[in-house]
Simulated assay, not measured.
Amino acid sequence: MPDSNLPGTDLLKTVLEPLLEDFQYWFTRSRDLLETEQLSFMSNQEQSDLLCRVKRAQEELNTAKMLFSATDGQVGVDMATLMPWHQLVTECWKVAMRFRQTPGV
């Protein structure tokens, strides 16, 4: 069994664990907005598509978090997985900002 006191493991726990928590937080907030509000600047289909992508990312994230926990922080997440999550969070931030700037909201 690998030594859980290796510097790489500490680095993963220090960097990756909070990053995964941040993704969880922003995906949850985005999902809540998309499920509870009708966004006047998006078509129903656009809003539904974005919600589906957030749900799919949450499922992927939950799997990554389970693997990270099950291996006691010994497993990282590939950048090819993280980058689409980052892009999706950025897209959701833009939608949320636009929603807050919409008159009458």
Rank of each mutant, 00 (worst) to 15 (best):
N44R: 14
V75S: 14
M79R: 05
Q58D: 08
T9P: 00
K55T: 10
L34D: 02
T90N: 10
L39C: 02
P84G: 08
H86M: 05
A57R: 04
L82K: 08
T28M: 03
M1L: 09
L20C: 01
M83P: 06
K55P: 00
L39S: 01
M42C: 10
G8V: 14
D10M: 11
N62G: 01
S4A: 08
F27R: 12
R53K: 05
Q38W: 11
E59V: 02
Q24E: 11
W93L: 05
A57Q: 06
Q45W: 08
K55W: 04
P84T: 10
K94F: 03
N5R: 11
F99M: 14
V15H: 09
D72G: 06
D10R: 13
N62L: 01
V89L: 04
P7Q: 07
R53V: 00
M1K: 13
T71Y: 14
Q87K: 14
T81P: 11
Y25L: 14
L88M: 02
R98M: 12
E59K: 02
K94N: 05
M42A: 08
P2G: 02
R29G: 03
L50E: 09
F41I: 14
T9M: 02
Q38C: 09
T14V: 13
Q47V: 05
V15N: 10
V95N: 11
H86F: 03
E46W: 10
N62C: 01
R53W: 00
L20F: 01
W85V: 10
T14F: 10
D78S: 14
E46S: 09
V75M: 15
Q58K: 11
M79F: 01
E59N: 02
R53E: 05
E46F: 09
K13Q: 05
L11W: 10
K55A: 11
G76E: 06
P2H: 05
C52N: 09
L50H: 11
A96L: 01
A64K: 00
L51S: 08
R29F: 00
S48D: 06
T14E: 13
D10V: 13
L16T: 00
N44T: 15
P103S: 15
S30Q: 10
L67F: 04
E17V: 00
D72S: 09
Q47H: 05
Q47Y: 03
R100L: 02
S69L: 13
T71Q: 15
M1Q: 12
S43R: 14
D72I: 03
C92R: 03
D3M: 07
L33P: 00
M42P: 12
S40Q: 04
L11T: 13
A96V: 01
R100W: 00
L12K: 06
L61S: 11
F99S: 12
D49N: 12
V89A: 03
M97D: 14
S69N: 13
R31H: 05
M83K: 08
T28V: 03
Q87F: 07
D32L: 01
L51A: 11
L6S: 03
E91R: 07
